[in-house]
Simulated assay, not measured.
Amino acid sequence: MELTTVWFGLIAVLWIGYFCLEGFDFGVGMLLPVLARDDTERRVLINTIGPLWDGNEVWVLVAGGATFAAFPEWYATLFSGFYLPLLLILLALIVRGLAFEYRAKRDEDRWRRRWDTAIVVGSVVPSLLWGVAFANLLRGVPIDADKEYVGGFFDLLSPYALLGGVTTLLLFLTHGALFIALKTDGDIRHRARDLGVRVGVAAAVAAVAFLAWTQGLTGSAGSAVLFVLAALALVAGLAVATRGREGWAFLGTFVAIALAVAGLFTALFPDVMPSSLDPAWSLTTTNASATSYTLTVMTWVAVLFTPIVLAYQGWTYWVFRSRISTRHIPTDPGTSSSPAPQPVS
Rank of each mutant, 00 (worst) to 15 (best):
E22F: 05
E101T: 01
G252P: 10
G9R: 06
G29A: 01
G196K: 10
G200H: 03
V344K: 07
A267F: 00
W74K: 07
F254H: 14
A233I: 01
G244D: 08
Q215V: 01
G131V: 00
I46H: 13
V228F: 09
L163R: 11
L295D: 15
F100G: 07
P341D: 10
Y75H: 12
A118I: 00
D155V: 02
A76T: 08
A256N: 12
A36H: 08
W53D: 06
L35G: 03
L138P: 14
R43W: 10
G64S: 04
A145H: 15
I180Q: 09
F179R: 02
R106P: 06
Y102F: 10
D271L: 00
L129H: 05
G263L: 00
S220M: 00
T184K: 07
R243G: 11
R112K: 10
V228W: 12
A145C: 06
A267H: 11
S322H: 11
L295C: 07
S325G: 13
L295E: 14
F320R: 08
W115G: 07
I11E: 12
V62R: 05
S223L: 00
W318D: 09
H328T: 05
K105L: 08
T77Y: 09
G244F: 03
R323D: 15
F320M: 01
T214E: 06
A70D: 05
S123F: 01
G27H: 05
G247M: 00
I143E: 13
V120F: 08
Y317T: 06
G222C: 02
V13Y: 08
Y102H: 13
W213H: 12
W74I: 01
L304C: 10
A181W: 05
R106D: 14
L259N: 14
D109N: 15
S282K: 07
R243H: 13
A92G: 02
A212G: 15
L84D: 15
G65L: 01
G23D: 04
S345M: 10
D155S: 10
L45K: 12
H175E: 06
A202K: 04
L91I: 06
A224W: 06
L211V: 00
W318G: 13
W213S: 13
V34A: 11
P142L: 02
G252R: 03
L86K: 03
D144K: 08
L98Y: 14
S289G: 07
S345V: 07
D187G: 14
A288E: 09
A99Y: 03
A36D: 09
V303C: 12
A70K: 04
W53V: 01
P330L: 00
G50S: 07
A239H: 14
